[in-house]
Simulated scan of single mutants.
Amino acid sequence: PEPTTTRVPALDFTQPVPESEEVEMDYFSDALFIGDSRTDGLRLYSGIQGADFYCYKGLTIFEVDERKIVELNGSTYSVVEALEKGPQYAKIYISLGVNELGYYNDDAYHQAFSEFLDTVKTLQPDAIIYLENLVPVNPQKCAEYKQPYYVNNDRVAAYNAIYPQLATEHQVALLDVASALSDENGILPADATADGVHFTKAWYQKWLAYLMNHTVSPEEYEAGQTAAEGA
């Protein structure tokens, strides 16, 4: 008889990554995180170990090829330069968008993010790319701490409508961090944030727990790419 082969399920890039069995911390030993001050908070306060971080306070999608924030071998590079000159990673997590909320040109944001995803896939061809959507803010805390007027959940929702399009267009894994870290009203709880935007230690830990329970195998990811290309 013919040997039976188990068919690997193809990842559906039109949907967020489903919950999976929790991984061990060493899952992040070949992972890179790209982001702004929220991602830096994940690095500092979540307890994550083993990962590399290309992140900086205020970083935007429009600066990833220009703003020099990554230290490598005694020199400072932009994120794009570091992706080219630095190590090759098995997983790359991307979380950007808070600092772009006041840009008010969603098409330009979509286009800039699209170009960046193309660049990441070209420079890091073996990586599973995880695209994280934008966690809402807490309106009362934002007002209390005088956050800019454009840092609001209407703008967050506008960008969160773009991420599924990007994931589908570029066949990257979408992570619905927004739902995981929001309350029943779809906002960041007041006790989860110090200033309306950034998280408390417990919420950074909750973010990490979500990442550890929502992973994709290289086989699923590759099968999804093949299926999408054949569609």
Results as ranks from 00 to 15, higher is better:
15 Q>S: 11
47 G>I: 02
14 T>M: 00
64 V>M: 13
31 A>E: 09
62 F>G: 08
50 G>N: 09
70 V>A: 08
67 R>T: 08
45 Y>H: 14
60 T>R: 11
56 Y>N: 14
24 E>M: 07
14 T>C: 00
33 F>Q: 01
28 F>S: 12
14 T>A: 10
38 R>H: 06
61 I>L: 12
51 A>T: 06
69 I>G: 07
15 Q>T: 10
54 Y>K: 09
51 A>G: 08
53 F>N: 08
23 V>I: 12
17 V>W: 00
17 V>M: 09
59 L>K: 02
67 R>N: 12
15 Q>P: 00
37 S>E: 06
18 P>Q: 03
59 L>R: 10
60 T>H: 02
64 V>Y: 10
21 E>C: 10
32 L>M: 06
10 A>N: 02
36 D>H: 08
27 Y>F: 15
26 D>A: 05
50 G>V: 04
65 D>S: 15
22 E>S: 14
41 G>Q: 09
15 Q>A: 09
45 Y>I: 03
63 E>L: 02
36 D>E: 13
21 E>L: 13
10 A>S: 11
63 E>Y: 01
51 A>K: 07
48 I>K: 12
66 E>P: 04
19 E>L: 06
11 L>Q: 07
53 F>Y: 15
48 I>N: 10
17 V>F: 00
59 L>C: 00
58 G>L: 07
57 K>H: 11
17 V>C: 09
35 G>V: 08
35 G>H: 07
56 Y>E: 14
23 V>M: 03
69 I>A: 07
23 V>H: 05
33 F>P: 00
28 F>M: 10
